[in-house]
Amino acid sequence: MTALLLLPLLLPCALPALARRALGRLSPAVALWTVTGCAVLLAGCSLAALAVFLLIGLLRLPPFAALGELVHPLHTASAVLVVPAAVASAGALAGSGWTLVRSALRQGRAYRSARAQAARRPPAGDLCVVDSPRPDAYALPGRPHRVVVTTAMLRSLDGPEREALLAHERAHNAGGHHIALAAAELVAHCHPALRGVRATIRLAAERAADEAAAASVGDRRLTARAIARAALAGQAARSVRPGFAPGAATGPVPQRVEALLAAPRPPRPRAGGAVALLLAACTVLSCVASATATAEVHHRVEVAQGEESP
């Protein structure tokens, strides 16, 4: 039973590699939602497993056993295993809960601040312009959706490139990508291995919006150029450069530009199907393992409560 509960804690470790493969083989939009869905379910299962470990440990303590109306001792593995597992689970749950709440609050604050900034002047259509010397642009979800662009960004692009930029941000809003991005941020705090998935989900969202923008303006090279010029303009305006380790893997922006400049990939249904199947298998396995183990523990608690025979 205890071994079964370890599965939901271990399976998330497979997700970062699988997610990168999925992005390489599925269409960006499909990869985005598949990976996000799997990450959320795996995070939920791992939290549930921790909660069950904690519950078992608590029910071995007399006060909690009395609270749970246990009339017989709970049948578990030896205390040597159960107590450290419960203590570790409590620590992990507390840590996750703390960072989760903090991250949710911080994101809420950043969102409200951006919303207030966008509301400073009447929009033209869905566009909010912020008069700022720093090139920046982002999609602002909400009712109604907005696209926020700084004057410096508008000035660093030509007319057709600006259309690609607007189409890209509109694709984020139309696709509801903020939901996937928020989910990616939250699951990253639920399990350390899921932190690696966050970058893949972000890249998938950008790639999905890039492809939508390219389709909307009808020109992949133009879209690629707009992204590259915007990124380089942003870099030129930044006085302090980020301290990246030399030789770090190529970042998301060149990957996006490269993908757009390359001819659209012919669909590879078999490779895509295989990776989707693996993702689904991982997730189902995790859900089944945590559900079975939880049901088993529940049964044993009822036995200890004298309501069921062993």
Binding site: A137, Q235, T250
Partner: peptide, 30 residues
């Protein structure tokens, strides 16, 4: 707030010096 990118999908992320070089090469090749 480093978290800003998470809900607000930004058009472009920060570049590493390597990224910058790769991008310039890509633009030139295009």
């Amino acid at each position: 707030d480093g978290d800003r990118e998470t809900v607000l999908a930004r058009f472009v992320a920060q570049l590493s010096p390597d990224d910058e070089r790769v991008l310039r090469d890509l633009l030139e090749a295009d």
